[in-house]
Simulated scan of single mutants.
Amino acid sequence: MTALGDLIEIDDRTVLVLGQELDVEHDQPDVANALVHRVGDTLVLVDTGVTAAFRAALRAAIDRVGPFSRALVLTTHGHLDHVGNNDLVDELGVPVEHYVPALDLDQMRDPASYWVRSFERIAWVTALPAPPALAGKLMSLFQPMRPFGATTRTYEERPLERIRIGSLRFTGWTFADGAVRVLRSQGHCAGHVIVHLRDCGVLHLSDEGNGACGAMADADQLKIQTALGAVALLFEEGEAELLTDGHTFAVRRGAEVVSYLDGLLEQATALQAAALGLAGESRQVRPGEFTTRYAQAIAELGVGGANPNPMFTAMMAVNQLRELGLRPESDGVDAPWSRPTLQDLAPARHGR
Score class of each variant (00 low, 15 high):
9 E>K: 09
13 R>G: 06
14 T>G: 01
17 V>Q: 08
24 V>L: 15
26 H>N: 15
35 L>A: 07
45 L>K: 04
49 G>I: 03
53 A>K: 07
53 A>L: 08
72 L>D: 02
84 G>F: 08
92 L>I: 13
94 V>H: 11
95 P>S: 06
99 Y>G: 03
104 D>C: 14
105 L>Y: 11
105 L>M: 10
108 M>N: 06
116 V>N: 11
122 I>D: 12
126 T>G: 10
131 P>V: 07
132 P>V: 07
134 L>S: 03
137 K>E: 13
142 F>C: 09
147 P>E: 10
150 A>E: 12
151 T>L: 08
166 G>N: 11
170 F>D: 06
174 T>N: 08
177 D>Y: 00
180 V>F: 09
185 S>M: 11
188 H>G: 10
190 A>Y: 03
194 I>Y: 00
198 R>F: 02
198 R>N: 03
199 D>T: 14
200 C>I: 11
220 D>T: 00
222 L>H: 08
222 L>Q: 07
224 I>F: 07
225 Q>S: 13
228 L>R: 13
229 G>N: 06
236 E>D: 13
236 E>F: 05
238 G>T: 06
244 T>E: 06
248 T>H: 15
248 T>S: 15
256 E>N: 14
256 E>L: 10
260 Y>G: 05
264 L>N: 04
267 Q>K: 09
275 A>R: 01
301 L>K: 07
301 L>E: 05
303 V>W: 00
306 A>Y: 15
308 P>E: 08
310 P>V: 10
311 M>L: 15
312 F>Q: 10
313 T>G: 02
314 A>S: 14
315 M>A: 13
320 Q>R: 14
321 L>R: 01
323 E>R: 14
323 E>A: 15
326 L>S: 04
328 P>W: 00
331 D>M: 11
333 V>R: 12
334 D>M: 05
335 A>Q: 11
338 S>Y: 02
339 R>H: 02
341 T>G: 13
345 L>H: 05
347 P>S: 14
351 G>K: 00
